[in-house]
């Protein structure tokens, strides 16, 4: 089991509910994720959300990214623009743009080349024009996009498009990234591309926090260090109609996180998750 230490809170979700036209989509969602430090290596956090279709994962993600205002509750992230007070990093309510959001279609501006898209993502950065250009060139090289920097989204391959969409959000939002079903409909090569992108983000800073949803339980167990299951809780013996967190698997505590290969304990966890999902 890898030794680790947990520091300050990176994401605090408190009693979140979203109601559309009188229908409660998600309710009472609360969780907290902390900065996990593994001695000797820089790595961030990868959090997976699993759940059957229609349980409110996308609504939760829109709320986490500030694209949707919650009906009740709040989403808090550290406010790094303020100085630490009493040993605590002041927090702020999440706003549009604080958390990067990549949807399963890997949407990009159709009228911007890869380079223009990345420059747009950095437009509010306090860096000078030269520094921005250097940063973009560095990322283009690291992410294998140098040769296609003048291409428009319709001229990119699926993998290049994915990397551009992720990179664009990474440059804009900094440490947080929410990906809604990033593996949906991808072939084995592109799944590997996204997996590599996760590793690149994860190793870029210990504050990097990737949150993603998937229907692939094995992939979630392989990549994540924390897994939340969203489903309909049983109410008076029958399933409810609003999504909420019905179980949390802290793979770090369970000794299952950051493994090179999946072992029998991982497969037991996968089976348990599958059973929980089927009954919710």
């Amino acid at each position: 089991m890898t030794a680790y230490e947990q520091k300050h809170t990176l994401l605090h979700v408190d009693n979140l509910s979203v109601v559309y036209d009188g229908k409660t989509i998600i309710k009472n969602i609360s969780f907290e994720e902390k900065d996990t430090v593994v001695p000797g290596r820089e790595q961030g956090q990868i959090i997976a959300f699993l759940g059957r279709s229609g349980r409110g994962k996308s609504t939760l993600f829109r709320t986490l990214t500030g694209l949707e205002a919650p009906t009740t509750g709040r989403v808090l992230i550290p406010d790094y623009s303020k100085t630490v007070h009493d040993g605590q990093q002041p927090a702020k309510m999440v706003e549009e743009g604080d958390v990067g959001f990549v949807n399963q279609k890997y949407t990009l501006f159709r009228h911007k080349t890869v380079e223009q898209a990345l420059a747009f993502a950095l437009r509010r950065s306090p860096l000078s024009a030269t520094e921005k250009a250097e940063k973009i060139n560095q990322y283009l090289a690291d992410w294998g996009l140098e040769k296609v920097k003048m291409q428009y989204p319709n001229e990119l391959s699926g993998g290049q498009r994915q990397r551009t969409a992720i990179l664009e959000q990474l440059l804009n939002s900094g440490h947080y990234m929410v990906l809604d079903e990033p593996f949906s409909g991808l072939d084995i090569g592109n799944i590997d591309n996204v997996r590599k992108a996760f590793q690149l983000i994860n190793r870029s800073s210990e504050l990097s926090t990737v949150i993603f949803s998937t229907h692939d339980i094995e992939l979630a167990v392989e990549l994540a260090d924390s897994i939340y299951i969203i489903g309909y809780p049983r109410e008076n013996g029958s399933p409810g109609t609003s999504g909420t967190i019905i179980r949390h698997f802290d793979l770090k505590k369970m000794g299952l996180a950051w493994s090179e290969k999946l072992n029998s304990d991982h497969y037991d966890c996968i089976k348990e998750i599958r059973d929980i999902m089927l009954s919710s």
């Binding site: 829109r62 990214t65 694209l67 549009e96 959001f101 949807n103 949407t107 990009l108 664009e168 959000q169």
Partner: peptide, 23 residues
């Protein structure tokens, strides 16, 4: 115009006027 394109612009800190301009 797909809502994903609007959300994409918003997630890049575009104001509503910027969304109108860019998207």
């Amino acid at each position: 115009i797909p809502v994903e394109e609007i959300d994409h612009a918003r997630s890049l800190k575009c104001s509503r006027w910027e969304v109108l301009w860019e998207v």
